Amino acid sequence: EQLARLKREFNENRYLTERRRQQLSSELGLNEAQIKIWFQNERA
């Protein structure tokens, strides 16, 4: 579920704002660094 949600977010926007990253962190139970790194890896 977390992965599917991250992929949906990535398809909508390849870059997250700090606020959006905080929201996802709270909703998915991941820390902000994990989300940031995931997005960086997807863009690579």
Score class of each variant (00 low, 15 high):
E1M: 05
E1Y: 04
E1F: 05
E1R: 05
E1I: 07
E1H: 07
E1D: 12
E1C: 11
Q2S: 09
Q2T: 11
Q2P: 02
Q2N: 10
Q2E: 06
Q2W: 11
L3K: 07
L3G: 02
L3F: 04
L3Q: 07
L3A: 05
L3W: 04
L3I: 13
A4R: 07
A4D: 11
A4P: 04
A4G: 06
A4Y: 00
A4H: 08
A4C: 13
A4V: 07
R5V: 08
R5F: 05
R5M: 07
R5Q: 09
R5I: 09
R5T: 05
R5A: 11
L6V: 04
L6Q: 02
L6E: 02
L6I: 04
L6N: 02
L6Y: 00
L6F: 00
K7E: 10
K7F: 06
K7G: 06
R8T: 10
R8I: 11
R8A: 14
R8S: 11
R8K: 14
R8G: 06
R8Q: 14
R8C: 12
E9T: 02
E9I: 06
E9A: 13
F10E: 03
F10D: 02
F10Q: 02
F10M: 02
F10C: 10
F10I: 03
F10W: 06
F10N: 01
N11H: 12
N11M: 13
N11G: 11
N11V: 08
E12Q: 10
E12L: 08
E12R: 09
E12A: 07
E12V: 05
E12M: 07
E12T: 07
E12W: 06
N13S: 07
N13V: 04
N13L: 06
N13P: 03
N13Y: 06
N13T: 04
R14M: 10
R14Y: 05
R14N: 12
R14A: 12
R14F: 04
Y15T: 11
Y15G: 06
Y15F: 13
L16G: 03
L16M: 05
T17D: 14
T17S: 14
T17L: 02
T17V: 04
T17H: 05
E18N: 12
E18V: 13
E18D: 14
E18I: 10
R19V: 15
R19W: 08
R19F: 11
R19N: 12
R19P: 11
R19Q: 15
R19I: 14
R19L: 14
R20F: 07
R20L: 12
R20A: 11
R20N: 06
R20E: 09
R20W: 05
R20S: 07
R20Q: 13
R21N: 10
R21F: 12
R21W: 13
R21Y: 12
R21T: 15
R21A: 15
Q22N: 09
Q22D: 05
Q22F: 06
Q22A: 13
Q22C: 11
Q22V: 13
Q22G: 05
Q22H: 10
Q22T: 10
Q22P: 03
Q22Y: 08
Q22E: 09
Q23D: 09
Q23W: 10
Q23G: 04
Q23S: 07
Q23P: 00
L24F: 00
L24N: 01
L24V: 02
L24M: 03
L24E: 02
L24S: 03
L24W: 01
L24R: 01
L24P: 03
S25W: 03
S25V: 09
S25D: 00
S25H: 02
S25A: 15
S25T: 04
S26K: 15
S26P: 01
S26A: 14
S26E: 15
S26V: 15
E27P: 01
E27Q: 07
E27A: 06
E27R: 01
E27K: 04
E27L: 08
E27H: 05
L28Y: 01
L28I: 13
L28M: 06
L28W: 02
L28R: 00
L28Q: 01
G29V: 01
G29M: 07
G29I: 02
L30A: 01
L30V: 06
L30K: 00
L30Q: 01
L30P: 00
L30S: 00
L30I: 12
L30W: 11
L30C: 10
N31R: 06
N31P: 15
N31D: 15
N31K: 08
N31A: 13
N31I: 07
E32D: 07
E32S: 09
E32P: 11
E32N: 03
E32Y: 04
E32F: 03
E32A: 08
A33D: 15
A33I: 11
A33T: 13
A33S: 10
A33Y: 12
A33W: 14
A33K: 10
Q34W: 15
Q34S: 10
Q34E: 13
Q34N: 06
Q34H: 09
Q34R: 04
Q34A: 13
I35E: 01
I35N: 02
I35V: 08
I35W: 00
I35Y: 00
I35L: 10
K36M: 15
K36D: 15
K36E: 15
K36F: 09
K36W: 11
K36P: 01
I37M: 10
I37K: 12
I37Y: 07
I37Q: 14
I37L: 10
W38Q: 03
W38L: 04
W38N: 02
W38G: 02
W38K: 02
F39A: 00
F39Q: 02
F39N: 01
F39K: 00
F39S: 00
F39H: 01
Q40D: 15
Q40R: 06
Q40K: 08
Q40M: 08
Q40Y: 06
Q40A: 12
N41E: 09
N41W: 08
N41T: 10
N41R: 10
N41A: 10
N41K: 11
N41L: 11
E42G: 00
E42R: 03
E42Y: 05
E42K: 03
E42V: 07
E42F: 10
R43Y: 11
R43E: 11
R43H: 10
R43V: 11
R43S: 12
R43A: 13
R43P: 04
R43N: 13
R43G: 08
R43K: 09
A44K: 13
A44L: 14
A44Y: 08
